[in-house]
Design a protein around this nucleic acid. Sequence first.
DNA 1: TCCCTACCGTGATG
DNA 2: GTACATCACGGTAGGGA
Length: 802
Amino acid sequence: MRFEFVPVDYDYFDFEGRNYVKLIGRNGKGKKICVVDSYEPNFWVVLKNGFEDKASEVADKISKLETEKAGRKTTVLKTEILGKKFLGKKVKAIRVFVTNHKDAHDIASEIGDMEEIKSRREYDIPLITKYIKEKGVNPLSWHFVEGEVLDVGDYGGLAGALNIDVCVGATKIEPMKNKEGFEPKILAYDIETDSTEIGKGDILMISLYGEGLKKVLTWKKCKEKPEYVEFWGDEGSMIERFVELVNEYDPDVLTGYFSDGFDLPYLKAASHTNGVKLGLGVDGKGPVFARGRIPSGKISGIVHVDLYRFIDAVFSQYLQSETLSLNEVAGELVGERKEDFDFKRLANMKDNDWKDFFSYNLQDSVVTYKLARKIWPDVVEFSKIVREPLFDVTRDRMSAHVENYLIHNLDNYNEIVEKRPMYGESEERKARGKYEGAYVFEPTPGLYENLVMFDFTSMYASVIVTYNLSKTTLEENGNFSKDVGFFPTMLLDIIEKRKKHKKEFAKNPSGMLRARSNAYKLLANAAYGYQGFFGARYYCREAAAATARFAKENILNAIGIIKDADYKIIYGDTDSIAFLQGDKSKDEILKFLKKINDDLPGIMELDLEDFYVRGLFVSKRGSETGAKKKYALLDEKNKIKIRGFETVRRDWCKLTRNLQSEVLKKILEDGNEENALKLLKEVVRKLNNREVGLHDLMIRTQLRRPLGEYVAEGPHVLAAKKMVAQGVPVNPGMLIEYYIGEGSSKRIGDRVYLPEEKSKYDIKYYMNNQILPAVENIFDVFGVDVKSVADGKRQTSLGDFL
DNA sequence: TCCCTACCGTGATG
DNA sequence: GTACATCACGGTAGGGA
């Protein structure tokens, strides 16, 4: 038979000592299909220079090797001798095919350090990655599959064990040229429990939301139940019903928010205690958790996607959200906030409380579902571009994405893939210390009018391409060769693709094109960090350091040119330069920009970022020197851009942040400090009269390590300890919220109060440590001393004397 | 007890 | 364990007077 097929989930299994790949996806009619494909595991042996003529001799020796492990015998099936490239150099290499991928490492070890052999490679690449790379069966792309329907007994009963209509043994899989697009069946879920510690409490309810499915399952009764609620006798039968509903819905993707770290492990623990099966997978089995910082919950035949992880690793840089809570992220991305539920009500639930809780639980799944739909184009594009399955692509960090992109594209350069660093190697790399980074211009504090901002487009990526900076182009003398390497070449390709898709998007906007252009942009931006990352296969500290160095050289040059043209430089950071427009017209500025570009090396490109009406730069606290990375700009559309100020820092209280942002706004709009001063006075008055609500005084700081590991105990650590004492579990990553109350202790941390603790806020603290420091340097630009304003003393302003 | 400073820790910029 | 360096700043902790 021959049919259209899109692979969604990849897995592999052993049969009679050999590896097979199990693809699960949909056919053209939307039916879930399992396709079994063969795979010949292999790795490479690279011969030393001068030993090329020994190739067949070495290959013969290798052919006779075999290993036995866990009752599995792996032998060398065949060898091929080929001219390849390794680290950019021509080499003679032997491709060694073995019976089982898991043993490739052992066979490679047995080959050992023969004098003819330089390196053994690609045995450390995951089987699925190798399979996709070698057979070109790309995720979420349409293929024609030819093959035979499997009998129940084939491959040790594989087909019979799977809850899938059709299992096919493939004889041929080829990409379809003209078919694009695939709408997955997504199902979102969420659980509510009475303890946040996994396995400690009960699951009170489970919600599911998808197309045509809207349910809350619970064993907690209430008289008047909403139509979407189903009551079950106990936790165990509720879980069994959940499994049943998932199986009936037959999703491609089961998604939750922080479900790797909470919902799925909780369900697993609860099903265990209740003695019921959590048979979510098409194999009837429960989720399997892979170890890691956060375990990854894998379900056979259904891609379990924890949206939080993808957002955290890839998407968060686009977000304004200060935390990655479902509430905040959904609020920003789908304009829908979760319903509120006060968990303190849990202690004493009445009928109506349960109704609210059900609704809250359902809303979590609804919001998760909408969020999944919203970022789906981005997930898909990443998966297609880096050619890794959904499961991995939604969990990998940026360095892994860059690396996977490299691995899957190295065949274009006939390159054998470099190995991962060994443990000791990573340590050595880390120990090599820091190198000099970006250049930052020290601004002179002041309020400026009519500013121009230039910036280099994708500066670090452009530098890597222009100067050919990479591991394989680094010469022994420390310079980088003129012969262009695969890393810069690939990066150039990424940059060009990004440009192309950005243009296409501008012409014909679609979620897919936006996502595609974004994905390329992210990959380009991450390429620099990748080369400096200790865990990278193509780590090259020299290349990373040179990237920063050449970038610095370029921005300094550009600053020089702009200065020489008699413009006054106001600020610059890494790849951007702000200067005064002076008496020049916008046209003249643009012509000037073009002229600068004509002389830039390689693909370096300086761009107009924007024109600004006003810009404010302040001094560092307690000093005359200008503060870097702190400024506020007003553009011609009256939009304000604030960088670095307390306003944008989440560890300052709302009162401070709101006041400061309003002060900046007023000053930028008015061009003077007069009205801004009134705002300050009003806040000072309210604070002194205790008219400020505690909610505006909460300080939020993230706990970033276990409590025991702190050398210095800051207020947030002491607040966290207080929480523990009150029986609230805390863990790294949590945002600790507290306010400062009155008290005799000098140490501020001794006066922290948790939100629900009633106390009098410390007026002095909020005045001297929050409000005044945040506006002091701003008013200082106008010669106004905020301390005396706060004291209600005379207002001194330079203006008074002029 | 006050004052100074080094260091710790967080969160920002690009 | 999970891209890089640069920067601002509050707060603690400890020494010296």
